[in-house]
């Protein structure tokens, strides 16, 4: 058994025993912290920094395990801490004690830093993965994308920042504020992120969103299979209606196509290649199919699909938010 598969199995077991959430589970700051700290204590957060580890494969597996076994919000929060933030810090040029301290504290689960996802060229700073805890911190990138960015760590929210409630990703909110006239006090300079380094981070983010999309598709398909095998109408299992079979076969084919393409992309990524163009293409297809697959699995549930007690509606909402932010 390879090291990667032992690791994957242990992680899967951990997620199954510690992170099995019901529809009613509220993802909160405390919940996140305790889950993340347990992961850290068991050494899962450390592995990502080891030289010899196949990072893309590990992240692909982690993303899929987290997404499949729990709420997407929790998966996103963990992945963006562990994968994106640490990659940002690795990509910063030059040595800085502040940067190393921050990386160590992220690994231990002592610091939560928000990474701006979107619209670097727009007037707002947008942080979609915030628990709105006063303990959270924020990466600030100054505006010169062409020459690379100067990256700072900001510990307090500036005046005028807003928290935005959304239709999905339970427990998380978006924090945004206008860059125009912002007054950032007490921010710490961490280092320079080159244009290339920024692209590396973006490639990774795209990679993770595809992995999460696949995790969601897998979850929603399983919910769909379960329902159609149990539900009876007109004296037969609804699975036995040809249209339902075709819907799910079509959805499954789309899932498989992206899944296998993504596994190939992961291998290519693991060999040290850049995946900007390929990632964009697979993400586009993956998001398209995510929408279709979550939609069809909701549809086969009939009225139950519209009720909050069934998870398919959550996959449908969470998937749409992933698409809106991730594209």
């Amino acid at each position: 058994m390879s090291e990667a598969s032992i690791y994957q199995e242990t992680l899967e077991r951990f997620v199954k025993s510690e992170m099995q959430l019901t529809e009613q589970t509220e993802i909160s700051w405390d919940y996140f912290q305790s889950a993340y700290k347990k992961l850290a204590e068991l050494g899962f957060t450390e592995v990502i920094r080891l030289e010899e580890v196949d990072k893309p494969l590990l992240l692909k597996n982690m993303a899929q395990i987290f997404t499949k076994s729990s709420h997407l919000s929790l998966a996103l929060a963990i992945l963006w801490q562990l994968a994106v933030n640490l990659t940002v810090l690795d990509e910063l040029e030059g040595f800085s004690e502040a940067k190393d301290r921050l990386a160590a504290s992220i690994v231990k689960g002592e610091t939560y830093v928000n990474w701006p996802w979107h619209n670097l060229s727009s007037g707002d700073r947008i942080y979609p993965l915030s628990f709105c805890s006063p303990d959270e911190k924020y990466f600030i990138l100054d505006r010169d994308e062409d020459k690379g960015f100067r990256v700072f760590l900001q510990s307090t929210l500036p005046e005028g920042s807003q928290s935005v409630e959304r239709f999905g990703w339970s427990g998380l909110k978006e924090i945004r504020w206008a860059r125009e006239g912002e007054q950032l006090q007490g921010s710490i300079y961490l280092g320079k992120l080159s244009k290339q380094g920024f692209q590396t981070v973006q490639d990774l983010e795209r990679f993770l969103t595809i992995a999460c999309a696949l995790g969601l598709m897998d979850m929603t398909l399983k919910a769909g299979y379960k329902f159609v095998k149990e539900r009876t109408q007109f004296g037969q299992k609804i699975w036995d209606f040809q249209v339902i079979k075709h819907y799910l076969a079509d959805a499954y084919s789309k899932y498989q196509a992206v899944s296998i393409a993504f596994a190939e992309l992961t291998e290519y990524f693991s060999r040290g290649n850049k995946i900007t163009g390929e990632g964009k293409a697979i993400q586009q297809v993956g998001f398209d199919y995510l929408q279709q697959v979550t939609d069809i699995t909701l549809q086969v549930h009939g009225g139950s699909g519209y009720m909050r007690e069934y998870p398919v509606q959550r996959f449908w909402r969470d998937g749409m938010l992933l698409i809106l932010y991730g594209k």
């Binding site: 979107h118 619209n119 947008i126 979609p128 935005v164 409630e165 959304r166 239709f167 978006e174 749409m320 938010l321 698409i323 809106l324 932010y325 594209k327």
Partner: peptide, 18 residues
């Protein structure tokens, strides 16, 4: 329309998402 709106459409209860 929601897809076109992108991050402008994420806020809960904006008419497009609702």
């Amino acid at each position: 329309l929601l897809l076109l709106a992108g991050p402008l459409g994420v806020k809960k209860d904006n008419p497009f998402e609702r």
